[in-house]
Design a protein around this nucleic acid. Sequence first.
DNA 1: GGTCAGATCGA
DNA 2: TCGATC
DNA 3: GACC
Length: 1125
Amino acid sequence: MSQLYKLRLSLLIPRNPNLGHAVGERFEGTVSIQYLLSLRAIHGPFWPRDTDSPKCESLPRRSGALIRPGRGRDPRHLLELAPRPLCLFARGYHSHSPPHIFEKMDCDAATNFFVEQDDRMNAPDETEEEFAARVGDRRSAQGSSSVRTGQHSSDHRTKTPRDATISAMRHSMCVRQKPKASPLSAYAGEDTIGQDAYMSNPEECIHSGKRKSPDQASRESGAPEKKRRQQSLTNLTAASRNVYNPACNSVQTDSPGTCHTRSFDKGPKAGKLIVYEEPNDDQVGRSSKLVDGGMSSLSASPIIMQQHESHQSDLDPNFIPAVVTSASGLSQECSPQHRQAVSQQIRAYHSPPPDIQAATLDEPSAQRSSLIRATSFEDGVAAPSSSAVKSEFERGNSGRARTPGNARARNGSPSCTAAAVSPSSGDTTTAASTQNANEQPPPSFPPRTKTTSRKKKVNDEQPPSGAHVEESAAKPKKRPLREQKEMSPAEFAAYISQVTSLNAPKKAKNTTFLKGMRIYYVGCDTDKAGERTRTKMQRLVAFGATLMPTYDPAEIEIIITEPKLTQEQFCAKHGLQSVKDVPAHIPILKTSWVTSGEERPRLDRWERHPSYKDHVVKQPDPAEANRAPVLRPTTASQDKLKANGAANRDRKNEAKVRKQRLANSDESDFDSERQSTRCASQFTEGHADKEKAAVSAEAQPDLPPKQGCLSGSSFGAAGSGGPSAEGESSRIPVPPGADSSEDPLAQYYGVARAEQEEELEGYFEVEPPVILGGQRSHFQCDNVPDYRPKLGECPNQDIIDIFTQLKEIYEIRKAESDNFRADTYRKVIKSLREYPKRIESREELVQINGAGKKTKDKIMEIIKTGRLRRLQFEMTAELDVLRLFQGIYGVGSITSLKWYAAGCRTLDDIHQRKGGIKLSDAQELGLKYYDDINSRISRQEVGEIFQRIKDIAHGIDKKLIVEIMGSYRRGKADCGDIDILITRPTDDKKHHKGLAQRMVNLCQMHGIIVDHLSIPSNWWSTELVYHGLCRRDDDSPVRRLDFLAVPYEQRGAALLYFTGDDIVSVLLIQLHAQFNRSMRAKANKMDYSLNQRGLYDMVVRNSSKRSEKLSEGALLRTSFTMVRC
DNA sequence: GGTCAGATCGA
DNA sequence: TCGATC
DNA sequence: GACC
Ligand SMILES: O=c1ccn([C@H]2C[C@H](O)[C@@H](COP(=O)(O)OP(=O)(O)OP(=O)(O)O)O2)c(=O)[nH]1
Ligand SMILES: [Mg+2]
């Protein structure tokens, strides 16, 4: 029995000016708790605004009211705004939406609820009493009962014939989706379209499935599929024990086109997926579609993903079971019984209309999809106040100058003016008139037209001659480290060294940071090298280090350990009495030392770490002091030596130095090195000061902060701040003097350690204001929803700003570690933004999702002291350079680091190939069009370009479905690129193979496409990815253009993928809200696999034990994607 | 102590 | 296989 | 860095 609540909701999402949606207003009425929950589930947690009426006891405070549909409007329209149903999952899984939602909304309830939702809301003219009387009694929801019965009710698969099912779906959709003449219909209009499209889906599938001959199917799937099959079989063999008999799955499809709801109870965030199954056509057409997620089903827009036929098409009946069998692999984690149980939960389900893909795809106007609206809604929620809204959308990325702040660091402007490359002349495209996609290969296969010289694929490779192209889909997967043979750390060290050395010759030159350094790494594990240990070792080797497998004081130069490893443990591992036994000349550093390279060619960061090592730390300062000195000398002998200098610890100095350098001009490596060294020494002093300051509480925050600021912010500041010090440092070589600083350092260490041990890497205090200043406008919090205490800024903006900085740092330097920390910060930042009031106590932090102990500590520190000590220490200079380089298309963290190490500091350096660096074709273009590519594109321009391309496409084949995706589809005010999805119905038995190429060729001829960034491996496929550069006209900037062609059956999944989630760009870094990732993670957790092609079931993942065998069979795939049959 | 999305393309 | 990108 |  559902409880009723009075609800006054305020829709916090202002209208999205780009989509012309008006969402706001208010709704007052009575609804059931389920309704509330469902809304919340869809739209994510919102802060309760009016706490007066809705008694949301059952709802966590935070999850309060979500919406505020228009006054007098049927709030249900909001459902139609829901982006993608599965969003729930995503939210539930990644975004920290309280799991309880899933708990409360069990599958049955959710499913039924959706069907009945009409009845759960009061009619406009209905009194509360009336409503209560009606809704209070569950059975009252008879209206849709028939539908319900057919669709959801039973746990057993409905026997409803396919047609019936479909019609039932339609019916349900109608009921549910189209609120009576809702004012929203304006944009809800798609529903109709959606329905049609939706309905056609299943039918088409079946159709195509049956229509296709097994032969054909197998042909299409091609070799890869076979391979996979073989592999899978192999796998099976290995794991033939636990057999999961699909036959046991009552859900089996005997009736065609049955929809199943699958529920999952794994983990706290369990949810469910509703799967639509095609008729069990043994040979072909078996496809499972992910209709949506539990609650999502309520949304008017379910998403359907169909598997590509080819995936299953050639699976023979026998094979399938086998595959399933392979699930035995899973059995270890998930017993057959369990799976069976789960599967039994599957019920027939009538999916709601899938407007999304259908609508969009079928309907040209890209804008009006509800999805967009939905998304925008989401977006709005996240950020905004009305004004905010605007900001949300408009601000998008535009706010932050795409031109990286780095630009300043840029000495020379990259000649961005380069003219577009003229289209290749002899294009076959010419022929491109309107031809239909034929089964048969085009008469003359279009030659690849890449302007740039590319040798690679010969497009024509796949002769269209009728047969064969493998569209395959076998996807290679990377094999988890754990699959590798088990080895002890020492063994692995030796192994990795060897392996690397074999491959090294090639790369060697780029990975020299640690070249020649004999490093002994000690992880936390002893017996066998775990994932972390392996990763670290690999990294060390990758950077050129000579990894010593065992602890041999005579051979070792440096010891690197994990922060967590205590000195006691260290000693125990090596049979030492105390760390003191470690020769003074061997510094014990943390892993971060390697990655913390400062500026110099070799990663210097590590310098700051010399002090850390617990062992060392514990030891009297002298010890460390000694080490540091020793280090230098050592380093002196080697290139890296420099880096080692204790001095290095201070990044600030270096940063400053660098900045100066940059400002002045590049200096030779030598100089730079020397400088850094000098600086370092001074730094130490600086640190000492800081330390003192820190120790004495914040009594003397000034000095330290300033330094920090200086280093971090601007030159000028630097000069004024720690003036003499820095100035001198750079000028005065600090020879042994540096050593003198050792003492101070020692102290610093002591203090620092305590803090550092926590894991924070050394960092200096920085003045938040300075750092934060420029970026603020880019934060979503800029505009705050009215329910927030203050408009314009989040109550915890300062914390957010600091965390944002940390996140950025980790992202730019992800090459050196991983990106998971940045992800964590992202989550926390998001949570903080959603938190309505100023955080004052640690207890409150419980509500900040994603914040663990360390994060909480940081937050508290910020609250108490106004700053995070550790924060920046980042050498802004280096960071700026890396960021600058990463602004070049095709250049990521690793490449930027290499270039930096090679001595490059500006784009001019890159141009000149300073240091002998090499650029790929794409990077070349990225450099050439640096500014263009890094600027946002107005919707207007995107629309124009898209229209031209679309026209061209339709000139080739009117049946081509060409739709714009990405941020444009989401309604963003500006776009980073132009994403276009291409597909084509196959009802006339024709396909779009080769048409994408013709599109590209024609676009080139028309001067729209100017160059290519990457070309599909096979043009003759219905499934391909193309990246290029285009421009509206000769006077317009060059823009990135992405084509994604997919088989018609996969359009749903492709749409889901390509539409993605909102992205907030901050200083060249894209921060995806992670919609795709989270949804995929969710699917994964449920033992499904979701990708741009569809949702796959029966994914077999290597289990620990099996891994051995598997690994042996090198061919082993990490997972098999099967379709339930 | 493992996992953190899953895929394509270039080199 | 790795790096970058979607 | 968090979570399982
Ligand atoms: O790591 C990623 C990046 C993107 N995508 C999907 C979602 C995204 O929406 C789509 C297009 O990518 P793009 O980089 O163009 O992002 P966008 O959302 O269009 O934003 P913008 O182009 O404005 O930067 O590809 C992913 O799945 N994973
Ligand atoms: Mg885009």
